[in-house]
Design a protein around this nucleic acid. Structure first.
Lengths: 245, 245
DNA sequence: CGTCTCCTTGAGGTTGGTCAAACCAGGTGG
DNA sequence: CCACCTGGTTTGACCAACCTCAAGGAGACG
């Protein structure tokens, strides 16, 4: 728990969307070269967030979306009584802050799980630019819609899957996203604790740990602390898609 | 289960946003009179959906958003293995179809739980209009963002609340939305079955039923089938907000 | 009046939670 | 270099919340 907010390091930034190797995974997807340059003009700061620091917290005023450039985040919703629910894990190319648009203030905490950097997208500028060219508008709408669809998937997970299926689905999702970023889908280094995984999946940390151990006994995984080797991805897939049998 | 799709009754519509008594709860919220008239031009059809019929189904192509005019809907996500998860219940003034924007096809089934009618908002027209005037763009973004925030709340519910708290939160949410529409927050007629409530809350129908019975024994509710009288809303509130004690 | 769907209630079982102890890796300081 | 500490992880024993299965009841409707 941090009490004093460490000031975020802010760097002037020249490297922009048009030269970013994440552009096919991020907001600029589908934009023409000309449009992308206009988007470049909007992004003039990058924030560096050290592991453990928060990019923003619930109730802070909302000004901007953030695109993860490097690193790994979690978003966390806290209830009045102190309970926390991890609502997502974000990696390179993914957007943070969409929850703040509706009310004008953030509703979750966004915390870096490793040293990270983000591009700052001032939201009113983004809306103005989106009015200028439809491709950006469409891309923004798609990203928000996909976040809704992702959330529905998590509801399905939490509402009607058993512990094994939840963990399997979680690992598959993680490996697929890593693969889309050019990493091997077989080697995963977990950036989050068992407790954070458990919170996301609606399980206790002991259950997550036990499930990892069971998967290891079954030859599906190799688990060495946070280093996971997926030996039988198809076994995970089977667990997720036909578990009701 | 319906196999033959009954054709949706479509009516030409003159009554539009500017004269709709839901305008303060729906998309036009915050628009000037002039802007609202432009929005009127976009909405030229209304669909009538009989109880039990679907407005759209997963995998159908996405063309439009739908604003519930009268009636009540559920949205349902189905997994490959046949499991269903109710992802939401929508009442007058709420939007259906946001999930379809990202992929161009719907990802859930939207089924009417009572005879209902909706306004059809062709999405490409809506995007064009949103580019013309920022107030509409902003309102659309806010609605999508609030849907994301709502989903996060459901994750909290499913991930870290016990059965009693889930049911209490569900009833409170329902009564609050009814109150915003001018109904008494004490009298609720449930439009959905125990099984649908259970699916939404990640519980079995028997657990929902037992929880209702317990609340009745505790004097919090009066339950007569689907007619619920909330006698002690503050008891529900207490359950939701301080249940960890 | 029979049938159908939905709801209620009971008895018993299972999954995952709780509590507790021990382990492990990494960092710190003597 | 090693002892110690810390946060995170693993594992076991036990327990309870919720699920499963089953029977019966209440309305709605033809």
């Amino acid at each position: 728990m941090q009490t004093a907010l460490p000031p975020l390091r802010t760097e002037p930034l020249r490297a922009a969307c048009s030269s970013c190797n994440l552009r096919e995974l991020c907001l600029p997807l589908g934009l023409s070269a000309a449009d992308m340059e206009k988007l470049d003009g909007l992004i003039n700061t990058r924030h560096v967030v050290a592991r453990g620091e928060t990019l923003f917290r619930a109730n802070e005023p909302f000004h901007a979306l953030y695109a993860v450039r490097t690193g790994f985040f979690k978003t966390c919703l806290s209830a009045e009584d102190g309970r926390m629910q991890v609502t997502g894990f974000q990696m390179a190319g993914e957007l943070l802050g969409l929850d703040g648009i509706g009310s004008g203030h953030h509703t979750v905490d966004a915390q870096a799980l490793e040293d990270s950097s983000v591009c700052v997208l001032p939201f009113s500028d983004l809306e103005n630019l989106a009015r200028e060219f439809g491709a950006l508008q469409m891309q923004l709408h798609k990203i928000m819609s996909r976040e809704i669809v992702r959330d529905h998937g998590v509801m399905m997970l939490l509402g009607s899957m058993r512990a094994e299926e939840r963990v399997a689905a979680f690992l598959l999702n993680l490996t697929q996203r890593l693969q889309a970023r050019g990493y091997s889908p077989h080697e995963v280094v977990l950036r989050m604790t068992r407790e954070e995984i458990g919170s996301y999946l609606g399980l206790k940390l002991e259950t997550v740990s036990r499930t990892f151990s069971r998967f290891q006994d079954d030859g599906i995984l190799d688990v060495k602390q946070r280093q996971i080797t997926v030996k039988l991805p198809e076994a995970l897939q089977r667990l997720v898609s036909s578990a009701a049998c």
